[in-house]
């Protein structure tokens, strides 16, 4: 009897260990696999050429990623610049100023919407943002824009990540102990001073974490951006020009990539690039967070 139980325990232990090791290993498998696949192109061209030139003629053997990388950075940058301040202001208002009823209603709305898939944001973007830019906004600045542009990508991404950021921030601000606010108020600070000097300060690690997650999400987002940013290989000259971020590049060309040998390798290199940047970014931000946490604990 006891033997049987111990055997079951042992089997369970081994299975759990196995599952854990396998799922950790996935990370390395993805990195290794994509790197292996991108070796052919890296042997042919130097990393520097790949990253800094912007000639993209797969059938002639030119593979320069600069315009894709820049597109990705622009779109992500715009998205964060729009989303972060709005999310901060909103979540502070909801947690610190709004009545409990509004708090409850708002957090349900945010919860519900944070699950809406990117493709839906993409549909909405093509239906509203793209025509808005092309007809109303762009004519003030440039002669012509189709609307499928860096700006459209940035806005759609921003709206997509806002619910994500807000739901984390609301949790972070909500976790600041009430006593801390009361302590500050009882020293004669106004509500706003308390918010600024106590609540936000205390929440900095959480704000950083939310931003990191939002950047990761925006950086690698494929479908929503693909649908609104025009997918045109060139360095965008203004935010009303079309652009072509890395994920969109991969998604759009998977069909034909098998016909040219280096093409596949180049696209896998693009995937590896995304993977690598996200991993490094996450690990670094984790280290930074640990540092911040340490400082704040004292």
């Amino acid at each position: 009897m006891l033997k049987g139980r111990l055997l079951k325990d042992k089997i369970a232990r081994h299975y759990m260990l196995f599952a854990t090791v396998v799922s950790i290993f996935v990370l390395f498998l993805i990195g290794g696999g994509l790197l292996y696949k991108s070796l052919p192109i890296m042997e042919e061209k130097s990393l520097w050429t790949l990253l800094t030139t912007s000639n993209w003629r797969p059938f002639k053997g030119d593979f320069g990623f600069a315009s894709y990388i820049l597109s990705t950075l622009f779109v992500t940058g715009i998205a964060i610049v729009i989303a972060l301040p709005l999310s901060l202001l909103t979540s502070i208002y909801i947690i610190e100023y709004a009545s409990p009823r509004i708090l409850r209603a708002f957090s349900s709305v945010v919860d519900l919407l944070s699950g809406i898939p990117p493709v839906i944001y993409g549909v909405w973007g093509t239906l509203t943002i793209v025509p808005f830019i092309s007809e109303k906004l762009a004519p003030h600045f440039v002669e012509f824009s189709t609307g499928y542009s860096v700006l459209a990508g940035g806005i759609v991404l921003a709206i997509m990540i806002i619910p994500l950021i807000i739901s984390i921030l609301m949790e972070v601000f909500g976790a600041v102990p009430k006593e801390m606010r009361e302590a500050s108020m009882s020293l004669g600070a106004t509500k706003w001073q308390t918010v600024k000097k106590v609540v936000v300060r205390k929440s900095i690690p959480g704000i950083v974490a939310a931003t990191v997650l939002a950047i990761s999400r925006a950086f690698g987002e494929t479908i929503a951006v693909l649908m609104v940013c025009g997918n045109f290989t060139d360095l965008p000259k203004s935010i009303f020009d079309a652009c072509y971020p890395i994920p969109a590049l991969i998604a759009n060309n998977y069909g034909e990539m098998m016909s040219v040998p280096q093409y596949e390798s180049a696209l896998m290199f693009a995937a590896f690039l995304l993977f690598f940047i996200i991993v490094v970014f996450n690990v670094i931000s984790r280290l930074v967070l640990i540092q911040i946490d340490k400082r704040y604990q004292l």
Partner: peptide, 25 residues
Amino acid sequence: AFARLTFDVLFGIPSIVYGAFGFTV
């Protein structure tokens, strides 16, 4: 601790990368 870090990183990896990796597999 290491496993949790790994899962956090995996969580942040874009879906297109999973797609591309799945394709190579």
